[in-house]
């Protein structure tokens, strides 16, 4: 032990600040959050004791008779059976949202990256222009798209009117409303995928393409047999990260659809947030949501890693 300390003390000293911050502000809250999910904690019963000032300035405290209590799995049962909140509606929304966003991010990002990887005029201009949405903070992008889709003054409905079509009440139906949020998030997320995949494309050995060409492979065959496998290390990472980020993406739904109509477009993260901080603050419900979201993501990430491992990827 002593020897181990002498040998490693500087390494430990260097990671210590980070470990402390993570320990105090990520893992301690995480444990508390998990514990809270087994209680009925909310805004009105969060105090453990009630203190009253008595004459002379002293304070007496006694235990709060209505303090939050341990309720076992009640929150989980309530949520999963739909007795409280709209878990399954939000779950479906989250799935549609995540799959649609990541698919479009990756598909469009890959298409643009392949195009930009060629030599042609104005390539530098296109590259900078296409990356630009990345520089826009996500809540600003959310407001911008909300403005564009605005039912009365928005440019999209204005354009529809101008060509003689009826304007669409985007936020009055579940799927059109979710559609607007997906458009906003796709716009925001494509540049990241594009640049990451462009980096991956440039690391593929050019000789492979020449050899394939000599063997008479068509450009589609080259794409499927050289480009896609060559992109594996990059694409597996960005898809994993992209899925997690999109799943937990808060500001777009929160500001673009705002859950309209009537909460039908909330995803799990925004649903949990509204439970915790809007109306009567139901902290335990939000914590339970959090545990469920985290479990879904951990399961997803480990299945994903196992799939990659089976295909011989070392992520």
């Amino acid at each position: 032990m002593r020897k181990s300390f002498d040998k490693h003390w500087y390494a430990w000293a260097m990671v210590l600040p980070t470990v402390i911050v993570l320990g105090v502000l990520v893992f301690y809250p995480l444990v508390r959050g998990v514990l809270q999910s087994f209680t009925n904690l909310n805004e009105s019963n969060q105090r453990d004791e009630i203190c009253t000032k008595v004459l002379g300035g002293a304070e007496t405290c006694e235990p709060n008779p209505d303090a939050a209590q341990f309720v076992g799995l009640d929150n989980y049962v309530d949520i999963l059976t739909g007795a409280q909140g709209d878990f399954w509606l939000q779950f479906v929304n989250t799935l549609v949202w995540t799959v649609a966003c990541v698919a479009f991010h990756f598909g469009l990002g890959l298409g643009l990256a392949v195009m930009l990887n060629r030599e042609f005029r104005f390539r530098g201009f296109y590259r900078v222009a296409l990356i630009l949405p990345w520089a826009v903070p996500s809540f600003v992008a959310a407001f911008a798209w909300r403005f564009i889709f605005d039912e009365r003054f928005g440019v999209i409905n204005g354009a529809l009117r101008a060509i003689g079509l009826d304007p669409v009440s985007w936020f009055e139906q579940r799927w059109t409303s979710l559609f607007t949020a997906i458009v906003a998030n796709v716009w925001l997320g494509v540049p990241f995928m594009m640049v990451a995949l462009l980096g991956g494309l440039q690391s593929i050995n050019g000789d492979l393409y020449e050899a394939a060409e000599i063997d008479g492979a068509s450009s589609w065959q080259r794409f499927v047999n050289i480009t896609l496998p060559g992109l594996r290390p990059v694409s597996s990472t960005v898809i994993l990260l992209g899925t997690i980020w999109t799943f937990n993406m808060f500001p777009i739904i929160f500001f673009v659809t705002r859950g309209q109509p009537a909460g039908e477009t909330e995803i799990l993260v925004t649903g949990a947030y509204r439970a915790a901080f809007e109306g009567i603050r139901d902290y335990s419900l939000a914590a339970t949501y959090g545990v469920l979201i985290l479990s879904i993501l951990v399961v997803y990430a480990s299945v994903y890693r196992r799939m990659l491992a089976k295909q011989g990827e070392v992520f």
Partner: peptide, 30 residues
């Protein structure tokens, strides 16, 4: 450096990427 706890730490960092704001925000708030 190779030091005891390194691998665990690396995984922890990746894992924290999965934490939804929903699970941490209430405890951090309190």
């Amino acid at each position: 450096y190779n030091f005891p706890g390194k691998r665990g730490l690396m995984w922890t960092f990746l894992l924290t990427q999965m934490f939804p704001v929903a699970i941490l925000i209430v405890p951090i708030y309190t």
